[in-house]
Design a protein around this nucleic acid. Structure first.
Lengths: 175, 175
DNA sequence: TTATATTTTCAATATTTTCTGAAAATTCAA
DNA sequence: TTGAATTTTCAGAAAATATTGAAAATATAA
């Protein structure tokens, strides 16, 4: 005999949030499981253990462990200890601005900086070449490189700021 | 007997650019082939045919066709005709700012808007619930939703602007 | 028409990424 | 120490994604 417990509206919304946030993970360059764990910790009032994460998301121990570890590495989660308990518990970062900054920095590091490096090299290696074609290419690399570099530094500045300092400015400029 | 032609410095740099730009494609949510074609068209002085793309990147006709088509859809390439020639040629968008805006818009559409929708729904469905836990969850969804919505509208404004209007402001604010 | 050039489609295949589960390593209380 | 609890690792399996290649569709010239 199988019993289906009625889910409360709240539980339903929470599950939706976790499922959909996870689905979005891919688009955000974050894998699905990590995004789901992030969602779970975000709405969890108490820190959760690896076992709780495994159970709630129905994932393996290895998967849970690896992703929790990586989240701690990013700063999206912190590990906390409960006295009298050997288990490790994890608490999600809940400040929206901090989450944004962490993700922005990580993406800058993984996406923008390598691009910038490629462009710099290509520009450097073709400096001073005489043919028209080479000059065009060199110019393109310089231009792209400058653009990417500027973008990078803007992102860096934003991610290093307080939300209360950036948002008002941004709103003023763009609303 | 195999003959290896000496590659010029320029050719070497161009191949590097194509290869590395392609490798970065993944990180950018753009597939490798599309990024490589983009790089190729970007530095190609003349529009290129499907066959030229295939040959240069050593990819299949189906792959070349599909990705060129998609690039035209995004606005990253335009199809041009040469009189007296039945083939279709493709020209890459070369304006850095325009490329940036196209990618920003596409990512907003694919990443930010779905996220915003999820959050709105979760907030809506838990409006007015009485328990403390529900109130916390509702508040989190509202807060996240507002943040994402604001980010989205800022990105929209930027992508709709002229480079010459945005960049000076940005530089002033963040340099 | 008909023949030929070109483009599109898509089932099959290959590649990449993610996940599992169990064994190994580590930690800690007794 | 020993042994139970917990965490980590990683080879192989599964799932997701990208690519091929050839047949079908379409377009054009003669």
């Amino acid at each position: 005999m199988s019993v289906t417990l009625q889910k409360s509206v709240l539980e339903q919304a929470q599950e939706d949030f976790i499922a959909q946030w996870g689905a979005l993970g891919t688009a955000w360059g974050i894998n699905r499981t990590m995004a789901q764990i992030h969602a779970l910790l975000l709405i969890s009032p108490e820190p959760a253990s690896t076992d709780e994460v495994m159970e709630h998301l129905e994932i393996s121990r290895g998967n849970a462990n690896t992703n929790l570890r990586e989240m701690v590495g990013w700063g999206l989660a912190r590990s906390v200890l409960k006295r009298g308990d050997r288990k490790e518990y994890f608490e999600g970062e809940k400040d929206v601005w901090k989450i944004f900054c962490i993700i922005a920095r990580e993406r800058k590091r993984r996406e923008i900086e390598p691009a910038s490096l490629v462009l710099k090299n290509c520009a450097e290696n073709t400096r001073g070449l005489a043919t028209a074609e080479a000059k065009v290419f060199h110019r393109q690399m310089v231009e792209l490189g400058e653009f990417v570099g500027l973008t990078s530094s803007i992102l860096e500045k934003i991610a290093a700021s307080e939300q209360s300092k950036v948002m008002p400015k941004a709103i003023k400029l763009f609303s």
